[in-house]
Design a binder for these strands. Structure first.
Lengths: 217, 217
DNA sequence: CTCGGCATGTAAACAGTGTATAGTTGCAGA
DNA sequence: TCTGCAACTATACACTGTTTACATGCCGAG
């Protein structure tokens, strides 16, 4: 029945208490709900049923769009890597000297992490993500490629364009910002002599760290 | 019934299929089981019921010794920090020059992490651990203090005993080895130009990284 | 030596979780 | 217009951590 207005209710935006059997935009609604939950409660506070609850559907509904909870979270993680890549690219192209490129990217990396800790943690929690997912791996590689570009610029601008130092420096820089991000999220840095807020922390401490760690030029 | 043999079976070591009502050494048995599960399946594969199952007791039994699952895991994490501290101390005292102290400690840190990835991850998963546990925090601080000692040696041996560089260098070194450990555990380093096994990886890549990152002396 | 307190264990139940299955709805293309 | 099939519901299952009431038996006080 109610066959009238055949193509009337396809979008329906946010159906709080919806009256239609089909949601209409459940996939994006679930992605949004999952992102919200991750921001509020982190990866451990996440549950697929809660996401379904917020989207106003039954617990089994998400399976039709994402297969499993790992499928949904993988999609969120991919979005995270895309945003991270964009942030790193902005930091790289907006800076002039290769040295400031690196420092700016480092700040971006950590800012991204502590700006959305739950999603950042998720992005490296491969026990919660699909294994061997090509799109996820490609998204991660894209972010890494941004770092590599800056490292390469940094090296080629120097006197010795030593290609053999590329991998160690890239690995070291990535490890540093990645470890810094993890420690900051875990609150392990509050006991150190940086009493500021985390945002201040990144803006002040990280450049100092990178300057102390980077070889003299 | 079976009230005979009153004080006959108090230790019983490992009671596979035990006949006594009381386990006798349940606390240590649960710690061992938890450590085993973490080594086999990581933090996500861990379950309190499985630990109880391996110890041969009912699901409610662990509560009497650890209160909650977080209580048990906190104990395992503390043991991990103690072992890490010892490893870092050995690396520090066994090395001669301050530079080799740092590199040796870096290798120890990462080796410890990839040697028992599940437990290492647990040690920084404060959503699985008791919050504001004094013993846990003290154990973590002790490990950090080992790093700080080496950094201090490294600085004071140099020409300029610049105290202002202590915190940044400590923070940078910790971030580097910590991030390196996480990336290695997450398998993010296999795509890079280090085709060796992880153990080889640490022995070869990390010194190279640290040498490239440490300021020239 | 006996006997009660209490730490240590069991058993069962509860509210959660992710997912599989069977059934229902209704859009979309032939 | 009809029908296939994607999308959704309802239910059930096995699993989780924790709580409750109860059982056991060690250990020290009288």
């Amino acid at each position: 029945m109610t066959t009238m207005s055949s193509k009337s209710h396809l979008p329906a935006e946010k159906d709080e208490g919806r009256d239609t059997y089909h949601h209409g935009a459940l996939r994006s609604a679930l992605l949004q709900a999952a992102t919200d939950i991750l921001r509020e409660n982190g990866p451990e506070g996440f549950s697929l049923r809660e996401a379904a609850r917020r989207a106003g559907v039954s617990p089994g509904a998400p399976a039709h769009h994402f297969g499993s909870v790992a499928g949904l979270l993988t999609e969120v993680a991919i979005n995270g890597f895309v945003e991270l890549t964009e942030a790193l690219r902005r930091a790289r192209t907006a800076s002039s000297s290769p040295g400031s490129q690196l420092r700016s990217q480092g700040e971006s990396y950590v800012s991204f992490a502590i700006g959305a800790p739950g999603r950042f943690q998720l992005m490296f929690r491969h026990d919660l993500l699909l294994e061997n997912d090509e799109r996820l791996e490609a998204a991660g590689q894209a972010a890494l490629a941004e770092l590599e570009t800056s490292i390469r610029d940094y090296l080629t601008t120097g006197l010795s364009a030593d290609e053999s130092r590329l991998q160690p420096l890239l690995l070291g820089a990535w490890s540093t910002v990645h470890g810094f991000a993890h420690l900051a999220i875990d609150g392990k840095l509050h006991t150190m002599a940086f009493p500021n807020s985390l945002v201040h922390f990144v803006a002040q401490a990280l450049p100092e760290v990178l300057l102390a760690m980077l070889p003299d030029r």
